[in-house]
Lab assay of single mutants.
Amino acid sequence: KAKLLVLLYAFVATDADTICIGYHANNSTDTVDTILEKNVAVTHSVNLLEDSHNGKLCKLKGIAPLQLGKCNITGWLLGNPECDSLLPARSWSYIVETPNSENGACYPGDLIDYEELREQLSSVSSLERFEIFPKESSWPNHTFNGVTVSCSHRGKSSFYRNLLWLTKKGDSYPKLTNSYVNNKGKEVLVLWGVHHPSSSDEQQSLYSNGNAYVSVASSNYNRRFTPEIAARPKVRDQHGRMNYYWTLLEPGDTIIFEATGNLIAPWYAFALSRGFESGIITSNASMHECNTKCQTPQGAINSNLPFQNIHPVTIGECPKYVRSTKLRMVTGLRNIPSIQYRGLFGAIAGFIEGGWTGMIDGWYGYHHQNEQGSGYAADQKSTQNAINGITNKVNSVIEKMNTQFTAVGKEFNNLEKRMENLNKKVDDGFLDIWTYNAELLVLLENERTLDFHDLNVKNLYEKVKSQLKNNAKEIGNGCFEFYHKCDNECMESVRNGTYDYPKYSEESKLNR
């Protein structure tokens, strides 16, 4: 008799109507990190870190770059004969040098303040090359056809396309004075040089004057150069050297050249137009028929994500570079809930034993079982409120962090190594801060989002509990077992918050 009662009780308990509160689960393989956990499985997430590029040089917003090819900045601007293909260059979106560009200054020497000139050019998007001192009329008392084997072109001695090597005419090199007034309405880049012979005999042979000088002056520039005559090792078949100089001439300003020898005179100059998204990159990537809004030396990035880990040097509207390998923000729920887990921000989770793959029309909802059958029903209101809140948060985070910009490298010469090392340390410090901030932001927001979901499920549970009161009992896994019969209409009233407690209280009292 006792065995019969136990079996009867078990049958009745199993047959009781139930309603459970749960949440969506799926077959997603997404994982995120939080402050407290690593690799948390979630139903949905968004990636904030771009880690792919196309490996190509592309047009930037429809404008092609200027590819210097086998030449570098120095060779292009001075007019190395091997860089003749660059003479027609007028406009570009950015400038590309190759790491091993070999054609710079063909006659050995240095372009002074080269690093600063590169910085200036990094904001130039177009130029006009014009004859600042016409070759045939500007130097009537001097020979202007100086050439050298060091600047050979097609097997013949030649010289820079933008400079003139002035030497004596006959047996004399009379003092020369020439000036140019900038009437271009924009900055003009003027380049010139000073020749330093290897011996007094060479000085006399070329310029006749043993104590020659070169003077260059404008409103913002004033220097006097004296040739340094000295024996030097042979470089590119030359014992002599040429140093090259430049200045930016403001609109309306005048530049005056005065010399008694050794002047490498300007022939062509450049009127410059600035462009905020221009820059110089060093890259071996090849040019393709493609378009982008962000270019790196590795390749083009076409992404609206706020961060990238491809390269710190970028041109155009680019994500911020960070050292992170993963920045994924959760938008959905835990896919593998932890039992009795309390989140960092106070939300209680884990009283549900598992997510439901059968509930596909919402994030949170119900599963019921009664004599009429069983089924899932999503709670659309709480789901939609959660979707709206999380979507707004993700968009806000992306908008705040998605300050796209150009980031170019800084140039230092060989004598500025300590400054370069200090600059690298400062840049590394800023990069570490950006990386830390980005990672911390994602970790915190992921923790908040998961706790937010847990709290929403808990609130749904409490909503049902407050309606049923003692007409049902909690069975410990997020479910309630009714003390009365609850048909589909009754189940719907529980879900929509209109459950009639008094209607079922007498039946429940008897069954309790």
Score class of each variant (00 low, 15 high):
residue 134 P to T: 10
residue 264 I to K: 00
residue 22 G to F: 02
residue 178 N to W: 00
residue 146 G to Q: 12
residue 86 L to E: 03
residue 197 P to D: 08
residue 242 M to L: 09
residue 239 H to T: 13
residue 149 V to N: 06
residue 215 S to N: 07
residue 38 K to F: 02
residue 44 H to K: 01
residue 108 P to T: 04
residue 209 N to A: 12
residue 196 H to G: 06
residue 176 L to G: 01
residue 148 T to C: 07
residue 111 L to H: 08
residue 45 S to P: 04
residue 75 G to F: 03
residue 172 S to E: 15
residue 116 E to M: 11
residue 264 I to R: 00
residue 53 H to Y: 15
residue 84 D to V: 02
residue 262 N to S: 08
residue 214 V to F: 12
residue 206 L to C: 14
residue 151 C to L: 10
residue 131 E to H: 04
residue 200 S to V: 08
residue 59 K to H: 14
residue 35 I to Y: 12
residue 135 K to A: 12
residue 186 K to R: 15
residue 178 N to C: 04
residue 25 A to L: 01
residue 108 P to K: 05
residue 206 L to S: 05
residue 135 K to M: 04
residue 45 S to I: 06
residue 241 R to V: 09
residue 167 T to N: 04
residue 72 N to F: 01
residue 185 G to W: 01
residue 230 A to C: 05
residue 245 Y to H: 15
residue 51 D to S: 14
residue 122 S to C: 12
residue 70 K to C: 04
residue 232 R to T: 01
residue 87 L to D: 02
residue 6 V to S: 01
residue 72 N to R: 07
residue 39 N to G: 12
residue 164 L to T: 01
residue 62 G to P: 01
residue 89 A to G: 11
residue 27 N to A: 15
residue 197 P to Q: 00
residue 261 G to I: 01
residue 122 S to H: 08
residue 144 F to Y: 06
residue 187 E to L: 12
residue 147 V to K: 14
residue 205 S to E: 15
residue 125 S to C: 01
residue 216 V to W: 08
residue 33 D to Y: 12
residue 77 L to I: 01
residue 278 S to E: 02
residue 16 A to T: 05
residue 255 I to G: 01
residue 80 N to I: 08
residue 117 L to V: 07
residue 136 E to A: 15
residue 281 I to V: 04
residue 179 S to F: 13
residue 169 K to Q: 10
residue 87 L to E: 14
residue 165 W to D: 05
residue 144 F to W: 13
residue 171 D to V: 12
residue 163 L to N: 03
residue 270 F to H: 15
residue 58 C to R: 01
residue 86 L to P: 08
residue 248 L to C: 08
residue 146 G to N: 12
residue 146 G to M: 05
residue 259 A to H: 12
residue 119 E to Q: 07
residue 163 L to H: 00
residue 22 G to W: 07
residue 20 C to Y: 02
residue 45 S to L: 13
residue 88 P to Q: 03
residue 238 Q to H: 15
residue 70 K to P: 15
residue 133 F to L: 04
residue 233 P to Q: 09
residue 61 K to R: 12
residue 213 Y to F: 13
residue 230 A to L: 14
residue 169 K to H: 12
residue 224 R to T: 02
residue 276 F to V: 13
residue 242 M to C: 05
residue 153 H to Y: 12
residue 61 K to P: 00
residue 3 K to L: 12
residue 282 T to M: 10
residue 127 L to C: 03
residue 155 G to A: 14
residue 158 S to M: 05
residue 179 S to R: 06
residue 229 I to K: 08
residue 228 E to W: 15
residue 78 L to K: 01
residue 81 P to S: 05
residue 177 T to C: 06
residue 155 G to P: 01
residue 29 T to Q: 06
residue 229 I to F: 12
residue 273 S to Q: 10
residue 238 Q to R: 11
residue 266 P to G: 00
residue 6 V to E: 08
residue 51 D to F: 02
residue 142 H to Y: 15
residue 24 H to P: 04
residue 281 I to F: 14
residue 265 A to C: 12
residue 219 S to F: 14
residue 103 N to F: 14
residue 278 S to Q: 10
residue 127 L to Y: 11
residue 68 L to A: 01
residue 204 Q to W: 01
residue 275 G to P: 00
residue 210 G to R: 03
residue 33 D to Q: 05
residue 251 P to I: 13
residue 255 I to F: 06
residue 50 E to G: 01
residue 235 V to C: 05
residue 198 S to C: 07
residue 117 L to K: 05
residue 11 F to C: 15
residue 270 F to N: 04
residue 221 Y to H: 14
residue 215 S to H: 01
residue 227 P to C: 07
residue 275 G to N: 15
residue 232 R to C: 02
residue 136 E to M: 12
residue 144 F to D: 15
residue 16 A to L: 04
residue 113 D to C: 04
residue 194 V to E: 01
residue 151 C to R: 07
residue 221 Y to T: 10
residue 227 P to G: 11
residue 31 T to Y: 01
residue 171 D to M: 09
residue 250 E to C: 02
residue 8 L to G: 15
residue 189 L to P: 03
residue 282 T to Q: 14
residue 261 G to S: 01
residue 176 L to A: 15
residue 141 N to K: 06
residue 89 A to N: 09
residue 91 S to D: 11
residue 118 R to C: 06
residue 62 G to M: 07
residue 35 I to Q: 09
residue 2 A to S: 13
residue 263 L to S: 01
residue 21 I to C: 04
residue 50 E to Y: 11
residue 206 L to T: 05
residue 66 L to R: 05
residue 240 G to W: 01
residue 8 L to I: 12
residue 85 S to Y: 13
residue 57 L to P: 09
residue 102 E to M: 13
residue 142 H to L: 07
residue 177 T to D: 10
residue 270 F to G: 01
residue 255 I to T: 00
residue 83 C to F: 08
residue 149 V to T: 04
residue 267 W to C: 11
residue 56 K to L: 12
residue 162 N to Y: 05
residue 201 D to P: 02
residue 141 N to R: 06
residue 234 K to P: 12
residue 173 Y to V: 01
residue 100 N to A: 10
residue 219 S to Y: 09
residue 134 P to Y: 10
residue 20 C to E: 01
residue 251 P to E: 14
residue 17 D to K: 09
residue 232 R to Q: 06
residue 223 R to M: 03
residue 191 L to W: 06
residue 254 T to D: 05
residue 102 E to D: 02
residue 238 Q to K: 10
residue 51 D to W: 08
residue 262 N to A: 12
residue 217 A to Y: 11
residue 197 P to T: 06
residue 210 G to N: 11
residue 39 N to T: 02
residue 125 S to H: 08
residue 205 S to L: 12
residue 98 T to A: 14
residue 161 R to C: 09
residue 180 Y to F: 15
residue 60 L to R: 03
residue 136 E to G: 12
residue 91 S to M: 15
residue 103 N to C: 09
residue 258 E to V: 07
residue 256 I to D: 05
residue 280 I to V: 15
residue 98 T to F: 03
residue 114 Y to Q: 13
residue 202 E to K: 10
residue 27 N to Q: 05
residue 198 S to P: 12
residue 115 E to G: 12
residue 88 P to D: 11
residue 101 S to D: 00
residue 186 K to C: 10
residue 125 S to M: 06
residue 254 T to M: 05
residue 53 H to W: 04
residue 268 Y to L: 05
residue 76 W to R: 03
residue 108 P to L: 12
residue 272 L to Y: 01
residue 233 P to S: 12
residue 5 L to P: 03
residue 233 P to N: 14
residue 246 W to R: 00
residue 117 L to Q: 10
residue 128 E to L: 07
residue 160 Y to K: 01
residue 201 D to F: 08
residue 9 Y to G: 01
residue 7 L to C: 10
residue 250 E to S: 13
residue 187 E to I: 05
residue 240 G to H: 13
residue 68 L to N: 06
residue 101 S to H: 03
residue 141 N to F: 02
residue 211 N to S: 02
residue 209 N to E: 02
residue 87 L to I: 14
residue 111 L to G: 00
residue 95 I to V: 15
residue 124 V to G: 04
residue 114 Y to R: 05
residue 189 L to H: 05
residue 144 F to K: 02
residue 124 V to Q: 01
residue 264 I to W: 01
residue 90 R to F: 11
residue 135 K to E: 10
residue 156 K to T: 15
residue 267 W to G: 11
residue 202 E to A: 12
residue 261 G to V: 02
residue 15 D to N: 01
residue 177 T to V: 14
residue 117 L to R: 03
residue 1 K to M: 11
residue 88 P to M: 09
residue 241 R to H: 08
residue 180 Y to L: 01
residue 23 Y to Q: 14
residue 270 F to Q: 03
residue 58 C to L: 07
residue 5 L to S: 13
residue 13 A to W: 10
residue 47 N to S: 14
residue 210 G to K: 11
residue 211 N to R: 08
residue 151 C to N: 04
residue 40 V to N: 12
residue 269 A to K: 01
residue 21 I to T: 06
residue 163 L to S: 08
residue 125 S to G: 06
residue 75 G to A: 14
residue 212 A to D: 01
residue 243 N to T: 04
residue 22 G to C: 07
residue 136 E to L: 11
residue 250 E to F: 12
residue 181 V to I: 13
residue 36 L to Q: 09
residue 129 R to I: 08
residue 27 N to W: 12
residue 112 I to Q: 14
residue 64 A to G: 12
residue 141 N to D: 06
residue 21 I to S: 05
residue 223 R to Y: 09
residue 32 V to R: 05
residue 226 T to P: 00
residue 48 L to C: 09
residue 86 L to K: 02
residue 281 I to D: 09
residue 211 N to T: 03
residue 256 I to M: 14
residue 104 G to C: 08
residue 24 H to T: 13
residue 193 G to N: 03
residue 8 L to D: 02
residue 204 Q to I: 15
residue 200 S to T: 11
residue 213 Y to R: 09
residue 247 T to F: 09
residue 43 T to Q: 07
residue 200 S to Y: 12
residue 65 P to D: 08
residue 231 A to L: 14
residue 75 G to I: 02
residue 113 D to E: 13
residue 49 L to M: 05
residue 261 G to Q: 01
residue 134 P to W: 01
residue 35 I to E: 03
residue 160 Y to V: 03
residue 41 A to E: 00
residue 198 S to N: 05
residue 2 A to G: 01
residue 145 N to D: 13
residue 112 I to P: 00
residue 180 Y to N: 03
residue 61 K to I: 00
residue 244 Y to P: 07
residue 169 K to Y: 14
residue 145 N to Q: 15
residue 59 K to D: 09
residue 202 E to D: 08
residue 252 G to C: 03
residue 130 F to C: 06
residue 86 L to Y: 06
residue 7 L to E: 03
residue 91 S to E: 12
residue 18 T to G: 00
residue 138 S to E: 02
residue 145 N to C: 06
residue 63 I to C: 08
residue 211 N to A: 14
residue 260 T to S: 15
residue 13 A to Y: 10
residue 100 N to R: 12
residue 97 E to I: 15
residue 244 Y to E: 03
residue 176 L to P: 00
residue 264 I to Y: 04
residue 164 L to F: 15
residue 39 N to A: 10
residue 125 S to F: 11
residue 13 A to C: 14
residue 246 W to I: 01
residue 143 T to E: 07
residue 181 V to R: 10
residue 195 H to L: 02
residue 230 A to Y: 14
residue 207 Y to A: 01
